[in-house]
């Protein structure tokens, strides 16, 4: 019992302190503390209660646009991660020419989203396709490099160990390389969930028919600040939720990992 208490008290504080801090922050914001600190006018930054009202008033519109953007982000994330993973596998299995694929991906990745979005709009039109394409580009590099590291950064002698059993290349891949890369794959997914949402939203800024980024930019243009902040809030919640889901998968899949001790 005593031990249990010792274990849970710091854990409880770990949860409680951020919540308390969050509440305090919202309170200060509500009471115009942030405006005072940053020298902002009231119309420049709505207070939490105004944002909450905008959230409630525009529920349907917010939800449908959130779904639109999340779909772009998730589809792009999945396609991009698959391409990235496939490239990493090729670079591992055929090191001679497969590594070239990684170089190509890193070149793509070096193009900023701001430059990529108009190009993709031009190629794939103003609908979802162009946004998905941007997300694919951002997600594939993160996956390719992390997965490649996981498939190739092996413990010393582990390849020798497999060689001593006369293991086939196939067995080395499935019994050693692939499981060794799981933590890196999850890291890549964690990075990409966040960046996918950003990529999708930023792409919608340029030209779109719908989505969080599109509506956000409209709301800003028409000075509907509480609505704009409602969209920002929705984007943040989705980002956190996706990150949380991947973290949950990670805790479950990496029971064996030192970091889970």
């Amino acid at each position: 019992m005593n031990v249990m208490k010792k274990m849970t008290l710091p854990k409880l504080l770990n949860i409680l302190l951020p919540i308390l801090f969050g509440i305090l922050f919202l309170y200060v914001w509500e009471k115009n503390g942030l405006h005072y600190l940053m020298g902002l006018k009231k119309y420049q930054l709505p207070v939490p209660s105004q944002i909450a009202k905008a959230l409630a008033d525009n529920k349907t519109q917010l939800l449908s646009n959130a779904r639109y953007t999340t779909a772009e982000a998730l589809i792009g994330l999945i396609i991009g991660s698959l391409i990235g993973f496939f490239t990493a596998v090729m670079a591992t299995v055929f090191p001679k020419w497969g590594y070239g694929g990684l170089t190509v991906l890193s070149a793509f990745n070096a193009v900023p989203i701001v430059a990529l979005s108009p190009v993709m709009n031009n190629w794939f039109g103003m609908g979802m396709g162009s946004k998905i394409a941007v997300v694919v580009v951002t997600a594939m590099a993160a996956m390719a490099f992390n997965a490649y590291r996981g498939l190739n950064d092996l413990k010393p002698f582990s390849l020798d160990l497999m060689a001593s059993y006369a293991a086939t290349r196939r067995e080395v891949f499935f019994l050693l390389r692939l499981p060794n890369s799981i933590p890196n794959i999850l890291t890549a997914l964690k990075i990409s969930t966040t960046s996918s949402m950003i990529a999708a939203i930023v792409s919608e800024f340029f030209a779109s028919y719908a989505g969080i980024g599109f509506e956000l930019s409209n709301a800003l243009k028409t000075a509907k600040m509480p609505l704009a902040w409602a969209y920002i809030t929705v984007a943040a919640i989705i980002g956190i939720a996706l990150h949380f889901i991947v973290s949950l998968v990670e805790t479950y899949a990496l029971k064996w990992h030192v970091s889970q001790k």
């Binding site: 010393p156 002698f157 582990s158 160990l161 060794n180 064996w256 030192v258």
Partner: peptide, 15 residues
Amino acid sequence: YGIVFQSPVLFDWRT
């Protein structure tokens, strides 16, 4: 061959 290496070389993801 059965080889015992200078370090244990266990696979972390296996019990």
